[in-house]
């Protein structure tokens, strides 16, 4: 049944026990995202060293999809190079049908494999919820864009 596909155990687990939900003092990149329609909020903070994300904090309040997506994102990006993060963002957006193409793994970039994030595929059948899943990722992109501008 499609609802159980949307609300997979891994989603509910991240919703109830979000990872990396702390605060990074003096973060290298930060952005706040909001979905004014439903009021969901996400703050993304990144520690970046030698072209890689060495720590991430994602806090917010909102629905299970937006919050689980943010938690899984934080879990996933810590330790990735900025190039891999970029690749991962586009892969997730392809998974969510936001960008065209196949989200499948690029053998050249195993670091950007989706892993648990594949659980987000359930939202494709719920178009109004795609924005929820995308909120942390759009906010991450904004944080990284800000980081690039500053350098």
């Amino acid at each position: 049944m499609s609802l159980d596909e949307l609300y997979r155990q891994v989603i509910l687990d991240h919703y109830r026990s979000p990872r990396h939900s702390g605060h990074i003092e003096g973060a290298d990149a930060t952005a706040e995202g909001q979905n004014p329609l439903c009021g969901d909020e996400v703050t993304v903070e990144l520690r970046i060293k030698d072209g890689a994300v060495t720590d991430a904090a994602v806090r917010g309040r909102g629905c299970s999809i937006s919050q689980a997506s943010g938690s899984m994102m934080a879990d996933k990006i810590v330790g990735l190079s900025l190039e891999d993060v970029d690749e991962l963002v586009h892969r997730v957006k392809r998974l969510l049908n936001i960008e065209p193409g196949d989200p499948g793994v690029d053998p050249e970039r195993p670091g950007a494999a989706l892993g648990d994030l594949e659980a987000l595929a359930g939202v494709r059948r719920f178009p109004v919820r795609i924005k929820c899943a995308d909120l942390p990722w759009a906010t991450l992109q904004e944080a990284l864009a800000g980081n690039r501008t500053h350098r």
Partner: peptide, 21 residues
């Protein structure tokens, strides 16, 4: 359960409610 999630689940039952602020 976030209201937005409630709205999605109810929608599957044909029930239209509002969720949000």
């Amino acid at each position: 359960i976030h209201p937005h999630d409630l709205a999605t689940i109810l929608d599957q039952e044909g029930v239209a409610i509002r969720a949000g602020h």
